[in-house]
Amino acid sequence: MTRTGISVKRFTAWRRRPWAGYAVVLAALAAIGVIYAGFSPQTDRAEAANANQAAAQASLENGKELFNKNCASCHGMNGEGVKDKDGRAIAPSLLGVGAASVDFQVSTGRMPAMNPGAQMPRKPPIAAFDTRIEKNYETPEEREEAHERQAEAQQNLDDLITYITSLDPGGPPIPPASAVDPSKGKVALGGKLFRTNCAQCHNFTGQGGALTGGKYAPPLSRDDVTPTQIYEAMLTGPQAMPVFNDSTLTPEEKQAIIAYVVQTREEPNASAAGLGRIGPVSEGLVAWLVGLGMLVLAAMWITAKKPKKLKKS
């Protein structure tokens, strides 16, 4: 409180505005948001230091080094898996998992894992394996550097796969580009298969969904989910997902599903707002907040207008 009457008065006057309460709430929310943002952990910072060190060496040597650095702490020095003292697996064995599995886990950023939970979340891959580098820079030097870094990350990933498969060959290989090309799949068949096999967890438009015990089916509707990753997921059944081997879903059927997923997510919505394509929950929210909200505002406006002539009557 100040002693000068004017500022008290001004403050009091501001305080008494009808919107003052809302302003205080808004300011408090903003402050909480800023504080939260300051304290919440960032995923990609911690591992970024590894970026430059994972540099050239012969393929296997490099792969081994990457493995020791990023994987061995959980999966064991020879990829044999680690169990806690009660015999429960902390990290599964990587022997014989196959190239498709390694490629899926690392290229989606799930591995190396940050902290063990019900399920490893998809996140940007650590810098050493991040092949999704921005390349549209202004200067040719920057562009060239970006290309180099991408090539290096791809090389790292290939080396890691080479090393892990060298421990125990076997398991499904990475599917060839021709097998995952969405433009060659039959969309209608894919839709049918998707609805019977995938929608129960991933939702009819691939928005993802909740599973039991804190697990979840991740969304397939994001652009960074590549056809190769979808194919690899079906082959290897990561986390809570079942394995759809080639006798359950033939390669042709897998391609149809990929075609359906990609076409559905690229298909524009019938109206400007798709409302998340998750069905009636968001529709109900919009009906109440937007529909009823706008009409309540209109009602307030209409009833606030007093016709002058009749005011006396």
């Binding site: 609805r195 019977t196 969904g209 109206s271 394509r277 009636p280 929950v281 529709e283």
Partner: peptide, 26 residues
């Protein structure tokens, strides 16, 4: 401007299929 009940995305009814997030209207 706001899409509602996009039945073409849900596909035809098939007693053997179901989607996660199946909710009725509010």
């Amino acid at each position: 401007f706001a899409q509602i009940n996009p039945v073409w995305l849900f596909g035809p009814y098939d007693p053997g299929a179901i989607s996660s997030g199946s909710q009725p209207d509010f």
